[in-house]
Amino acid sequence: MKCKRFSGLLAGALSLLLVLPPPLAQAEAEGRLFQPTGENLMISPPAGWRLAYMDGDPEGDYVVDFLPQNEAHDSWREGYMSVQRRTFPEAALRDNIRARNLTMPQVAISEVMQIAQRKCPGRFVPMGQKDSLTNNIPTSVSGGFCDRLGPSAPYGEGSVMAVFEGKERLFVVQFSWRPSTENELKQFAYRISPARLQQFLDLLNAATLCGGPDEGKCPN
């Protein structure tokens, strides 16, 4: 199985719980389309965004990417969305996390933020971490903005990421954005308008599970 790495700075940081695969050689690829089986996360992309990439195992780990209609993986600016389904870590690690009265999403997002701040070559502005239930799913959400990220994002990149803990799987959702100019939306700490950020958060808050124990059948 081959899956694509998360795009951007917050992408390389789920090392404690989620082992991310190497990136694809191609910047833009369709992968292969399939209908996942088993427990799945139902979440909608922003209106008008297209399915840009899908790959993985219908019965196991997979990744799905969405982009605005005229964007490409190697040059996107307006936005990017990634949804990944991941196998739980080994039982000993899960038990250790629960013994500390924590959830896997809490630990995963905390690790993401620590590594993201260390890896940002410029100034990193973190978001607070929110640990809650989303439609009865243990969830942790955080993110931030790095103001310098190299040739692909010369004016920086922001992301908001959520980790959802299902009954059988972990699900990771990431929304990202990149300013197109040095001064675009500079009046906002994360270089995104509050209304647009809220749109991403509303989509995260509407996520539900299907296909797992007592979760109902997933739509085709």
Rank of each mutant, 00 (worst) to 15 (best):
L18Q: 13
V19Q: 14
S82R: 13
P45R: 03
E78L: 11
Q69T: 05
L14P: 13
I97G: 05
F34C: 07
S82Q: 15
E39S: 07
N96E: 14
L41K: 11
A99W: 08
R32L: 14
G48R: 00
A91L: 14
R100T: 00
W76E: 05
L102T: 06
D57V: 08
S15P: 07
Q69N: 10
W49M: 03
W49T: 03
Y80I: 04
L18K: 15
L24E: 11
L41P: 04
S82K: 00
Q26E: 03
A47C: 08
E71A: 05
R5E: 11
E28C: 08
S7F: 14
W76Q: 01
S15H: 12
G60I: 01
G56W: 05
M81Q: 12
F66T: 06
W49L: 04
A72R: 15
R5Q: 11
F6V: 07
L51C: 01
Y80D: 00
P46N: 08
A29Y: 02
I43E: 03
I109Y: 05
E30M: 11
Y62L: 06
E71R: 09
A91W: 10
N70C: 01
Y80A: 07
M81W: 10
A29K: 06
P23Y: 10
E111L: 10
R94P: 07
D55F: 06
S7P: 11
G8W: 07
N96K: 15
A91H: 13
